[in-house]
Every structure is written in C-alpha cells, then in structure tokens.
C-alpha cells in the first residue's frame, strides 16, 4: 500500500467513527468522505463497504448512480457550467464548448496539471443571469465565450502574482 493510500484509509476511518453501521448511512458517509477528500478513491470505498458489512460492488453502484459523487480527484478550481433550461436556451452549451476548448478537457474531467475540473449542473437558481457558470462555488452571470477567457486570464494573473511573491 502506498503512503497516499494509507492516508486515505486513515481519513476514511476517522469519518466512519462518527456513524452507525447502518446501510441508511451510506449516502451521508459518502458525502462526508467526498467532502473531506474531494473525491471517492477506491480505498475509501473498500473501507466503507467493510464498515457497513456490504459488498464493495454495492458501494460502487451507489457512487456511480448519483451525479454528486466523483471518482477522480478535483482540480484546484472547479468550473460548473449551468445547463438548466434557461441557461441552455441562452447559450449555456456554447459556453460549455468554450470551456472545453480552452481547458482541453471534457465534462467530468480534470486538467492534467490539476488546476481545473469541468462539469455541468442543472439550474443553480439564478436563471436571471443566464448563461451561468459556477466558478469555485460562486455563480457568475452572463458567462459567454469572451468571459470564459477573461475568467481564465484572471486566474493566470493571480497565479503569476503569487509565484512572484513566493520567490
């Protein structure tokens, strides 16, 4: 077992201690573990299965059924493009394309440098500002292809500034 895997096991165990061994706790457990680790690695799922005394495949089937759970590590910044009805009709799919083009990844993926991950959400409730992209949990309105470039540029500038300061 690698060090990283052992660490995942430890952290998962710590969370499990707070729960009863009840099947009904599976989803809340998964939510807590993902909240801590950012995603659900294999070791975490195995640990949870053992704790609840259920086959690992049952944990996997729940994880893959629900949209909330991720199997790959998140990026430093999360981009969620709203494809709710209002946003879609105002060009959300064009915005999604622009993100894909610029980040060179598909939805559900993370950039190789682990800076960004890209996914879609359904209506975040601010249809007034459609098309909406939720950037690091903050909904931003009127995100059209040019604004995608603007947002990415501001991240780049921030990173360069930090890089200079730390030198």
């Amino acid at each position: 077992m690698t060090k990283e895997q052992a660490e995942v096991k430890q952290q998962t165990k710590r969370i499990l201690n707070r729960f009863g061994r009840k099947r009904g706790n599976l989803v809340p457990i998964l939510q807590k573990v993902q909240g801590k680790l950012g995603y659900l690695p294999r070791e975490a799922m195995l640990e949870i299965a053992e704790f609840l005394g259920i086959p690992a495949i049952d944990v996997y089937s729940v994880v893959t059924f629900y949209n909330q759970f991720r199997l790959n590590p998140p990026g430093k910044h999360s981009i969620r493009v709203c494809l709710g009805t209002a946003c879609h009709m105002k060009g959300g799919y064009i915005t999604l394309d622009a993100w894909k083009r610029r980040l060179c990844i598909d939805r559900g993926q993370t950039t190789p440098d682990r800076e960004f991950d890209l996914d879609i959400v359904a209506c975040v409730g601010c249809c007034v500002m459609a098309p909406v992209s939720v950037v690091d949990d903050k909904p931003q309105g009127k995100v059209e292809p040019t604004k995608v470039d603007g947002i990415l540029l501001s991240f780049k500038l921030k990173k360069e500034k930090q890089g200079k300061e730390s030198q």
Binding site: K22, R23, G24, V27, V62, F65, Y66
Partner: peptide, 8 residues
C-alpha cells in the same frame, strides 16, 4: 430507496 442507502 435513496434514504435507505440504495441507488434511487
């Protein structure tokens, strides 16, 4: 079903 910890 999802409250019971199953796929919905």
């Amino acid at each position: 079903a999802s409250l019971e910890g199953e796929p919905g």
